[in-house]
Amino acid sequence: MDITVSEDIDSEFLEVVRDILEDREFKKLNCFRQHLKTTRFMHSLNVSYISWCLARRFRCDARAAARAGLLHDFFLYDFRDKQPTRELQAFYHPKVAAYNSTNHFNISEKEANAILSHMFPLGPLPTSKEAWLITCADKICATMELFQLHIALAKPGRVKISAA
């Protein structure tokens, strides 16, 4: 699967997340629906980009915000299927995403904590500015995607994903 990103997307952002975007396992997120017509891949990319923009604006750790935003939903199962635990999806998937991200990408503690808390108030209280930004960006993106409004990188033609 190849990913082509339009030239008008900030190259600095792409440099921060390129290794994740090019990862074979991460690309599998494109096979899962997230909010109606959005894939989990595109949702994660939207959250990442908005988190990165906000972090730069508020002089936070933009790298951590972009990477944790991209990995916040890094779980490779359909959330509508029965889970191996009795936990609700809202509580379960951040743990799986943090576990997968830590093992697959060797993320920082700040990034792992941001992933674990991104479902606040349904999960733990975010403990860093970057975690708060990801939590907010996730809510913004989910709302926009549910209403099928194009935001950030989801604008038609900005990102193309094809099988390779």
Rank of each mutant, 00 (worst) to 15 (best):
F41I: 07
F41K: 04
F41Y: 15
M42L: 15
M42N: 09
M42F: 14
M42D: 06
H43I: 01
H43Y: 04
H43F: 06
H43M: 02
H43D: 00
H43P: 02
H43E: 00
S44P: 05
S44D: 13
S44W: 05
S44R: 05
S44M: 11
L45N: 03
L45Y: 03
L45I: 03
L45P: 01
N46G: 05
N46S: 12
N46H: 08
N46Y: 07
N46M: 06
V47A: 11
V47E: 09
V47N: 08
V47K: 05
S48R: 09
S48N: 06
S48K: 07
Y49F: 15
Y49A: 04
Y49N: 12
Y49V: 04
I50D: 01
S51I: 03
S51W: 02
S51G: 04
W52P: 00
W52H: 02
W52F: 15
W52T: 00
C53G: 06
C53P: 00
C53K: 15
L54C: 06
L54D: 07
L54R: 01
L54A: 08
L54H: 00
L54N: 04
A55L: 04
A55I: 03
R56L: 12
R56C: 07
R56S: 02
R56W: 04
R57G: 00
R57C: 02
R57W: 10
R57T: 05
F58M: 14
F58G: 07
F58S: 12
F58T: 09
R59V: 06
R59N: 14
R59A: 13
R59Q: 15
R59W: 12
C60A: 15
C60M: 14
D61L: 10
D61T: 12
D61H: 11
D61Y: 12
D61G: 11
D61M: 09
A62C: 12
A62D: 14
A62P: 04
A62Q: 10
A62N: 06
R63F: 13
R63N: 14
R63G: 14
R63I: 14
A64I: 14
A64W: 02
A64R: 10
A64C: 13
A64T: 15
A65D: 01
A65T: 04
A65W: 01
A66D: 06
A66C: 10
A66I: 11
R67K: 13
R67Y: 06
R67D: 05
R67W: 04
R67H: 06
R67M: 05
A68Q: 09
A68Y: 12
A68M: 11
G69L: 02
G69H: 03
G69W: 00
G69N: 05
L70H: 11
L70V: 13
L70Y: 10
L70Q: 13
L70R: 11
L71S: 09
L71C: 14
L71V: 07
L71D: 03
H72M: 12
H72I: 07
H72F: 12
H72K: 08
H72S: 13
H72T: 10
H72Y: 10
H72Q: 15
D73A: 13
D73M: 10
D73Y: 08
D73C: 10
D73E: 14
D73W: 11
F74H: 05
F74M: 02
F74L: 08
F74D: 00
F74A: 01
F75E: 06
F75T: 07
F75A: 12
F75M: 09
F75S: 10
F75P: 05
L76G: 10
L76Q: 08
Y77K: 12
Y77C: 10
Y77P: 06
Y77H: 12
